[in-house]
């Protein structure tokens, strides 16, 4: 995943609470390899009706949704399962940031591992953005700001998350430097608590 520092793009409103990961990608799509592209699975069962026809009113199906890259939603976005495929679906559909008052914890760390910013804003700020959306926004990771069309909001970002997003890193890149400390810890732990180790099968 290439890193990024500043992103400008169209922001879409998804004025829903508790958009859980089962909504973001229904389980039946998750056996596909990533190379298949997950963008088409995003919010599948909200975008299509039970006959498989597009719901024209759904925000992602409106004409202005084409090319959108920022999503604005209500509280507890990405709650539920640990499925990283929920993030793949957003990223593959072209999203770089989601703005909401709160996020599922696992979803947030999955997002950052895939170059997607979970930007937490106060509920009033989110309501203001929802009101104004769709709109063009600029998201700046260094400044911690979301601006555009008369809107200006600040968000907090964990410094490590910023580092990972800016460089497009995942944790394996960051851990390599600590090999020695890890093996020393493992040796001590195994000596003190041998019952934690299983015989290899």
């Amino acid at each position: 995943m290439p890193g990024w520092t500043r992103h400008e793009g169209r922001a879409l409103p998804l004025p829903l609470e508790n958009v859980d990961t089962d909504q973001l990608i229904p389980a039946r799509f998750m056996s596909a390899p990533r190379s298949a592209g997950y963008g088409g699975f995003l919010l599948h069962d909200l975008r299509y009706d039970s006959e498989g026809a597009l719901r024209p009113d759904f925000p992602l199906n409106r004409p202005e949704a084409a090319g959108a890259s920022v999503l604005i939603a209500r509280r507890n976005f990405g709650g539920g399962s640990s499925r990283e495929a929920a993030v793949y679906a957003l990223v593959d559909a072209g999203f770089r940031a989601v703005i909401a008052p709160s996020f599922g914890d696992i979803f947030s760390s999955n997002a950052v591992n895939n170059g997607l910013l979970p930007a937490r804003l106060p509920a009033e700020a989110v309501e203001a953005l929802l009101e104004a959306a769709p709109l063009e926004l600029a998201v700046d990771l260094d400044a911690g700001t979301i601006t555009g069309e008369g809107q200006a909001h600040r968000f907090e970002l964990d410094p490590v998350w910023r580092l990972k997003l800016v460089n497009g890193w995942d944790d394996i890149d960051l851990t390599a430097a600590h090999d020695e400390a890890i093996s020393a810890f493992a040796t001590r732990r195994r000596a003190a608590r041998p019952w934690l180790w299983l015989a290899t099968p």
């Binding site: 399962s81 640990s82 499925r83 990283e84 495929a85 993030v87 696992i106 760390s109 999955n110 591992n113 895939n114 964990d158 490590v160 995942d170 944790d171 394996i172 960051l174 851990t175 600590h178 890890i182 493992a186």
Partner: peptide, 20 residues
């Protein structure tokens, strides 16, 4: 605690995980 796929790969490769 539950983790995502990137974190699973990290645990497989290092037997460790970063957490706050």
């Amino acid at each position: 605690f539950g983790i995502g796929a990137t974190e699973v790969a990290h645990v497989l490769a290092t037997q460790t995980i970063w957490q706050r």
